[in-house]
């Protein structure tokens, strides 16, 4: 599949849009309230998750998740450990395909195209949806090769000069160029933890994806490196749709425009971040964000 190049057509203003989504997303408690954003707003979302359920063997880990994730925004996923955030994230780039015995129902569409359609090429999908992991996992190759690998793999460059440019551009965009420009040949694993994580981000953006998924990208880093990553995320949202899982609520509040609260496999509440953190609609959300449990 060629996931369509035309970007989503979201035109409305963010607050109004988020309001719609939020209202439509209490199904965990209100049972079957249809997601009822206007047809227009539905089109605007980059990722549209519909009635997504997931089982590991016989154990259900996600229950009827409905989310509309807006384009060029940061959407945070929060919730207590084991509530299914990572499982959900892995559905978006179909990494769950690699886990044996996984059953998935429902659908996710990227730019209104179903990613679970049998005709979808997973390789192609993953070149549109990049992922950054909790623990930095640079390839055991040089810094340069770490970035250059995927563009070459997907045939995005035609010459060495073009590739050099792309490597430089990606490293610059990830805020790493200044630190590594003179050691592009050094092994990626020789960088510091924070640098490695930014290298992984640079690696993800080198193929110019539409969406970047981040699973607790800063949880293995010290506060300073975390701040750097957060600034980076803030800059990246001008170009990419970012979905980030975090246990750090302040971080979610700082970097994200929208936040979804997961609990035991359900999305309890989904709203713009300010609203969710200041005036949560659900009791469980309030309990969680005030630290009463989780």
């Amino acid at each position: 599949m060629t996931i369509k190049g035309e970007s989503g057509m979201y035109r409305g203003d963010a607050a109004e849009y988020a309001g719609n989504v939020a209202l439509g997303n209490h199904q965990a408690s209100d049972e079957t309230v249809e997601t009822n954003p206007a047809a227009e707003a539905a089109q605007a979302s980059k990722l549209r998750v519909q009635d997504l359920s997931l089982w590991y063997g016989d154990t259900q880990a996600l229950f009827d998740v409905n989310l509309d994730i807006p384009e060029r925004e940061v959407t945070a996923l929060i919730g207590p450990s084991g509530c299914g955030k990572s499982s959900f994230l892995r559905c978006i780039n179909r990494m769950n395909d690699l886990v044996p015995n996984v059953t998935i129902r429902g659908d996710i569409s990227l730019d209104a195209e179903s990613i679970y359609d049998p005709s979808v090429d997973v390789v192609q999908l993953r070149s549109h949806v990049g992922m950054v992991f909790q623990k930095p996992n640079p390839f055991p190759k040089s810094v340069y090769e770490n970035i250059a690998y995927a563009p070459r793999l997907h045939g995005l460059v035609s010459s060495r000069a073009e590739l050099d440019d792309l490597v430089e551009k990606s490293l610059k965009r990830a805020g790493l160029w200044r630190e590594v420009s003179d050691r592009l040949d050094a092994p990626g694993t020789a960088l510091s933890g924070g640098q490695q994580q930014r290298l992984c981000i640079a690696r993800a953006i080198a193929v110019d994806p539409d969406v970047i998924l981040m699973d607790e990208p800063a949880s293995a880093l010290d506060p300073l490196a975390t701040a750097t990553i957060e600034e980076l995320i803030d800059e990246l949202k001008a170009h990419y749709t970012i979905v980030i899982v975090t246990h750090n609520l302040q971080q979610a509040a700082r970097v994200s425009g929208y936040t979804a609260f997961f609990h035991m496999g359900y999305v309890i509440e989904y709203n713009d971040t300010t609203t969710l953190f200041t005036t949560p609609y659900e009791q469980k959300t309030e309990d969680y964000i005030t630290g009463r449990y989780g």
Partner: peptide, 10 residues
């Protein structure tokens, strides 16, 4: 994680 990273790159 190296494998996962590579899979995630497509």
């Amino acid at each position: 994680p190296v494998r996962m990273g590579a899979f995630a790159m497509g």
